[in-house]
Design a binder for these strands. Structure first.
Lengths: 111, 111
DNA sequence: CTAATATACCTCGCCTGTCAAGGTATATTA
DNA sequence: TAATATACCTTGACAGGCGAGGTATATTAG
C-alpha cells in the first residue's frame, strides 16, 4: 500500500485500540475495517497486526477470547480493557500533539 | 523531550530536508532551530541527527562542506541538492497523506 | 472433481531507524 | 580552574514492521 513503514511505526497500537474502542473484533476484520476506512490506502501486514495483538495483550491494554463459530475458521476476538481505553486517549492526544509539531516543521509556509 | 521516538521515526529526514529548504546550515544549528520552532517540545538526539546526515548524503539528497570559521569549533555545513528538493516535496506530500489517513483511523469522531 | 480464492490464524528472523553512552576539540563564563 | 556551551563523531543495543513461511476451513470457478 501507499503508506511507508516508518510513517506507520508507533501508530499501529493506536490504530488497533481505536478500532476496539468501537466494539470487540478479531484480527482479520479489524484489518478489513482499516482497509475500508482508508479507501484501500492502508492495510496492516499480518505479521505486524498479530505482533501488535501480542504486545497489547501482554501489557493489559486488550484481552482476548475465542469466538464460538460452528462453521468457518476460528476467530480470536479482542476487547479493549479500561487500561487500554486510558492508553488510547493518551496515544491519541500524543498523536495530535506530534502532528502539530510536525506540521510546523515540515510545512513551515502553512498552518 | 515530550514526543515519543516512534512518532518521530520516518520524519527525521523530512524535518532535516525542510530545514535545508530554507538555507544551508549545520547540525547543531539545525537542531537549535527545531527546538526553537517547537517551543522546546522536540529535539533530535545527536546520534539520530548525524546518522540521518550520513544517510541523506549517501543517497544524494544533501551535500556537505566544511565552514571556514577561524575561531570556535569547526562546522560541517549541509545543503540540499535538486534531488533532495524533489524528495522533500515527495515526503511532505506523503506526510500529509498519511496524516489524513491516521486522522480518520485514530480520531473517527472528528474531521 | 479440483484448483483457486477467501477467510482466519500464527511464527521466525531480517532490516532499519532511534538513542544511550561514549568520545574529541574549542571558546566562554563563573 | 571548573563548568558550560558550542560543535563534531561512532558503536552497539533495542524495538517495531514485515517478508516468507506455515496451518486450517469454506466457497467459487472451470
Amino acid at each position: 500500500m501507499s503508506i511507508a513503514s516508518d510513517m506507520l511505526r508507533g501508530h499501529t497500537d493506536t490504530i488497533i485500540l481505536a478500532q476496539l474502542m468501537q466494539n470487540d473484533s478479531y484480527g482479520y476484520k479489524i484489518n478489513r475495517a482499516i482497509v475500508e476506512k482508508t479507501g484501500g490506502q492502508l492495510e496492516l501486514k499480518e505479521a505486524t497486526l498479530y505482533t501488535a495483538f501480542r504486545r497489547l495483550e501482554q501489557v493489559g491494554y486488550i484481552s482476548s477470547y475465542w469466538g464460538d463459530e460452528n462453521t468457518g475458521a476460528r476467530r480470536r476476538y479482542y476487547s479493549i480493557t479500561p487500561l487500554g481505553v486510558e492508553q488510547y486517549y493518551r496515544l491519541a492526544a500524543e498523536w495530535e500533539q506530534s502532528m502539530r509539531l510536525l506540521q510546523r516543521l515540515i510545512r513551515p509556509d502553512e498552518g
